[in-house]
Structure formats: structure tokens, C-alpha cells
Nucleic acid binder design. Structure first.
Lengths: 230, 230
DNA sequence: GTCTATACGGAGATAGAC
DNA sequence: GTCTATCTCCGTATAGAC
């Protein structure tokens, strides 16, 4: 029932012998994995510590030794996943350096961002966090901080630099980044927030994002016919 | 404790005698009110039917006679509130007729929309619905339908008309409406989704919305210097 | 239709042996 | 550190009297 408490074997049938000192750490990870699955599936309140206990293969007492309470377990699990969410994202400055022009860089970056944020597991996590914001305000703060560090902040810097170079005209970079994200990723994200079952249509996503970037550049881009500093 | 089961009096101390046939309807309403408060405060799973029972002043058996189950009660309560949310919204066509120009009309409309959607109770309801979407997919559909009927649909019509008249150039009105909403209301809405305690700053809201509408018009508006059909 | 009283299961958390 | 066994409370839902 529980899990591999002993006689665990790998894919070749060889017994897995955990390094002695890692036993506690491995159990801790097993708890986190089981808890994440249960919380994502049931939400915080409906999630059962009994289910997490059985799935993780450790005893309930061990879970409470490690995490103290259901609330603390929830916070530990969710806050661990959040930063990993954005780890795959290429820093905007690099995307800009690798692209032939600003529009291409913006399209590539927002597309990559959308691919990450629209992953079903991330959308699930996002809905979970939003639904529990009133119970766990720390999660809202964490979500904001991670988003800002990994995406908005770097984009603000990039827009500021491009404005200094004369390639864009962005008077309020912080607001502009919010607008850019809202007009591109924000649109499919909103749809999938309320209709999780909707599949992601690649060509539709590309055209939505392209249109959003064009909207952004119509306001903040250099005028047409402009080809560099005079 | 319970509520006004008998000897209930109005503000002048006069006894309130419910019309005989309305007794059931009045209890039904008391249940709905108590349930909404409890669901908004605790979320679906953590909400207690015992608490709803006590606050509504009727017995638990009566609640189950009326609604059958906790799930059905939840759906009845939430779906009843949703349409009322948008009832205060002026139809976009009227806002346009009453405004001196398109920009003013768009600013007024999105501002009014923001005022409604940013009300703390509505934000609370929205977080609740999002958090329970996987358990109650019907609510996502309902939310989408109400939003579309009361806001997006009429706006699409309006943009289509304005394009026909030559006052705007909107090739894809459905997408444009999503962009307009995302660039204006969507920005403070996102902030308040993750940071509910943040108060609404009127001047900041106005400047955000103004900037969003300008962004929209930079792409879809008539070119500057243009003063009516030739 | 409405009430009181209760059935029945599962929740989170812990005591104490090892 | 980890387990087994258990405590205590509260959950939804219903039976039966009025």
C-alpha cells in the first residue's frame, strides 16, 4: 500500500540503497511530492493528511515532525514550486541580444513566458494560490516577488535601456511592462483560468501574442521610417 | 443566536408578519444570504453547513430540503450573485452616445467596469470561483457567459460599428476588446488578485486606465490630424 | 415544511514504544 | 527519527415527530 519502505528496486530490478545520512531528506522529499499532488488535486481544505501520509510512504507522525502542521506543510510545498516555475525562462536581456530586432525579441520572450505559465500544472497551482490568498496572504506576496524578480523587473530594465538608446519611447517602463504582459500572455491566461480544459492552440497563441506586441509597439515603438539615430 | 424565528420587529418596533405564502421563500433567502457569507469567508470546502444553519436561523434539515446538498447550495448561491455583479454596468452603446468622443467613452466605460470588478466583495467572489473551478467547471462557463453578455459582447458590437463608420480601424474586434480590457481593468485587477489588502488609489487607477486607452487608440484609433470623413 | 436528534465517517494532531 | 495506535472533534446528511 504505502510505498517503497524496503526492497525498493530501480528500473533494472536492482535494490535502491539510500545513502544513510540522506534518509531523512529523502523522506522529506517524498512528503513534499505527495503533498503537492494532493493539494493540487483537492485544494487546501479538502486535502487529506491521511492521503498524503499513504502516498508518501511515511507515517503521519513523521510528517508532523518535519512540518508541524498542515498549514506549514502547504506553505513549504507551494513556495518551493513557485521559483522553479520561472527557472526555465530565458532572461529578457539575453533574448534581446540574440534577436535581430526589438519586435522579434518581445515576441520570443512573451511566447516563452506564455508557454511556461500556460502549462496545466502551473495554471492549477495559480488557481490554488488565488483561491487560498485570503487564508495565506504570504503566498500572494511570494507570487508577486518571484514574478517581479524573474520577469517584470528585467523587462523594466530592458525597456529603460532601449528608451535611453532611442529605440523605444517608454515614459513609464513599469506600467508599460504590465501592459505588455497583459496584452500578450494575459489574454490566453485569463481564458485558461476560467476554462481549464481548453487546449492551447499554437497558431492562435502566436497570433494573439503577435497582435499584442504590435499593439505595444504602436504606442511605444519608434515611428515607421525611422532607421536609427540621426 | 439563530435569527428572527418569531417576535421579529422592524425598525419601529412593529412586529413583522410575513405573508403566509412567502414563509418558504423568505427562509430560502435567509439560507442564501448566510451561505454566501460563509462561502466567501471560508471557501467551499472549509465552509460549514452547521455555521450556515445557525446564521440563517433555520434548521439543517430545511436547508437540505431546499437545496439537496452542499454542492448544489454552493452553485445556487454563487450563480445567483454573478449576474447581479454586472447589473450596475451602463451598456457601452449608451456610454458612447453620451460621450463627446471615443476616447472619453472608452475611459468612462473601463473606469466604471473597474469600479465594479475591484469591489472587495467581487474580488473575493472571483478568487473563490477561480479556486473552485476544477471542482465546479460550470462556474467558469457561467462567469465567461455573464462577462461576455454584459461587457465583451456589447463592446465588440461597438468597435465593429465604429470601424464601419471609419472612426476606428479594428480588424479583429473580439481580440481588440480582450486587449482593451486587459490593458485597463486587467492591470489593477491582477494586482488585487494577489494582494487583496491593497486599497484602490483613485488617481492611480485613473492614470492606469487613461494610459491603457491611449495604448489601445495608438493602434486602433484614427491617425492624428484626422477630423472626420473626407 | 420544519424541527430535533442522531448516524456515520473522516478530519488534524499526538502519546509512547522502539 | 520513525512507527503504530488512538484521541477528540467536526463534517455532511438523514430519520422520524409534529
Amino acid at each position: 500500500m504505502g510505498a517503497e519502505r524496503q526492497d525498493a528496486t530501480d528500473e533494472y530490478g536492482m535494490p535502491i540503497i539510500p545513502a544513510p545520512g540522506d534518509a531523512a531528506a529523502r523522506k522529506r522529499q517524498a512528503i513534499i511530492d505527495a503533498a503537492l499532488a494532493e493539494f493540487l488535486a483537492e485544494g487546501y481544505s479538502a486535502a487529506s493528511m491521511d492521503v498524503i501520509t499513504n502516498r508518501s510512504g511515511v507515517s503521519k507522525a513523521t510528517i508532523y515532525k518535519h512540518f508541524g502542521s498542515k498549514e506549514r506543510l502547504f506553505l513549504a510545498v507551494v513556495s518551493g514550486v513557485l521559483p522553479k516555475t520561472y527557472a526555465d525562462l530565458t532572461p529578457p536581456a539575453r533574448a534581446l541580444a540574440d534577436a535581430p530586432d526589438v519586435r522579434t525579441a518581445l515576441v520570443r520572450h512573451t511566447t516563452e513566458l506564455a508557454r511556461i505559465l500556460l502549462r496545466p500544472e502551473i495554471m492549477l497551482l495559480r488557481r490554488l494560490v488565488i483561491g487560498e490568498i485570503d487564508r495565506f496572504p504570504q503566498l500572494g506576496q511570494l507570487w508577486y516577488l518571484v514574478t517581479y524578480d524573474m520577469n517584470n523587473g528585467p523587462l523594466v530594465e530592458m525597456l529603460t535601456d532601449l528608451t535611453a538608446k532611442g529605440e523605444l519611447h517608454v515614459p513609464d517602463p513599469k506600467l508599460a511592462v504590465q501592459q505588455l504582459v497583459a496584452c500578450t500572455v494575459g489574454i490566453p491566461q485569463l481564458v485558461h483560468t476560467f476554462a481549464p480544459a481548453t487546449p492551447v492552440d499554437d497558431s492562435e497563441l502566436a497570433s494573439t501574442i503577435g497582435s499584442g506586441v504590435d499593439l505595444f509597439l504602436a504606442r511605444y515603438g519608434r515611428p515607421p521610417g525611422w532607421h536609427g539615430p540621426a
